[in-house]
């Protein structure tokens, strides 16, 4: 128990000490016994002071009423206060000098030794230039970054539009199919109207298509040719064309010519039933 007590006391002591230490550093209680001999100070001041009515030209001093609360820790505010003091003081001093008619500004053609050497000022200039360059470069980089962002957005927009168009195309084809289905796959006029192809819809555009392999120098056109798709379809097509013809007006084909009128190959006088069927076939 005794030991415990001792430790506790020690703890308290330590804590109080450690608490008080930063207080001494920060609060800075004024020392009670600090010497402050006001009379002595005044006497000394009188001893060394220049005469009261000494000309201002000798002193060149200006007093400035400072803002009452300047935060020392705030560098900007503090420097600003000093700057305003200097500026204000200079204005006042120049006004006095001007009224006294004394020269105070260095004429532009007056060259003399300066406080800082030329080589040092060159260094200063170099540093300023480097800083300026740095800022410019940073700005350029920022701009490039933004441009990239915009380009990305534009690309996304384009892709979206492309996808939308594709969808629309597919939709329109579907619609057309539905229409066809509704009209019962009627041939002839309907068929023609269903395909609303323009005259040049089968012509190849000269533009290079997207998604073409880099080795393909034709720009993907060779692959697309419907004639080269497969030999079988090609032959069938040819045969059909030889039978039914390709293109041209249909009315001309349906008219009789001298040859057809004299052709009695399919005419069978005896079999009426067969004749009717054939006739029906031909009509349809």
């Amino acid at each position: 128990m005794n030991e415990d007590d001792g430790i506790d006391v020690d703890d308290e002591e330590l804590e109080s000490k450690s608490d008080s230490e930063p207080e001494v550093l920060r609060l800075k209680e004024p020392l009670k016994n600090a010497v402050y001999n006001e009379d002595g100070l005044a006497e000394k001041l009188e001893d060394i002071a220049w005469p009261e009515d000494v000309d201002w030209k000798h002193k060149l001093t200006v007093d400035h009423e400072q803002a009452p609360d300047i935060d020392v820790e705030d560098d900007l505010a503090r420097e600003m206060a000093f700057y305003t003091q200097a500026l204000d003081g200079t204005r006042k001093a120049f006004a006095i000098l001007q009224s006294a008619g004394l020269p105070f500004l260095r004429p532009p053609d007056y060259y003399a030794e300066m406080v800082k050497s030329d080589s040092h000022m060159l260094k200063v200039k170099g540093k300023l230039l480097v800083e300026k360059k740095k800022i410019e470069e940073a700005e350029e980089r920022k701009k490039a970054r933004e441009a990239k962002k915009i380009a990305k957005e534009v690309q996304a927009q384009k892709n979206k539009e492309r996808a939308k168009r594709k969808k629309e195309d597919i939709e329109s084809v579907k619609k057309w199919r539905k229409q066809r289905q509704q009209s019962g796959f009627a041939k002839g006029k309907d068929e023609d109207m269903g395909f609303n192809f323009d005259g040049n819809s089968f012509e190849r555009s000269k533009k290079k298509r997207p998604g073409v392999s880099p080795g393909d120098r034709s720009g993907g056109f060779r692959k697309q040719g419907w004639k080269s798709k497969s030999g079988m379809e090609n032959k069938k097509r040819e045969r059909r064309e030889s039978k039914f013809g390709h293109g041209g007006r249909k009315g001309m084909k349906k008219q009789n010519t001298a040859e057809t009128t004299n052709d009695f190959r399919d005419f069978n006088k005896g079999d009426v039933k067969k004749q009717r069927r054939n006739g029906a076939n031909r009509l349809l």
Binding site: T61, V62, D63, Q85, G89, T90, E113, M114
Partner: peptide, 15 residues
């Protein structure tokens, strides 16, 4: 930068 040897104007805060 300023001239070496030009007389400075001394400004003091009022306090």
């Amino acid at each position: 930068n300023h001239l070496k040897g030009s007389r400075p104007i001394l400004t003091f805060s009022a306090n």
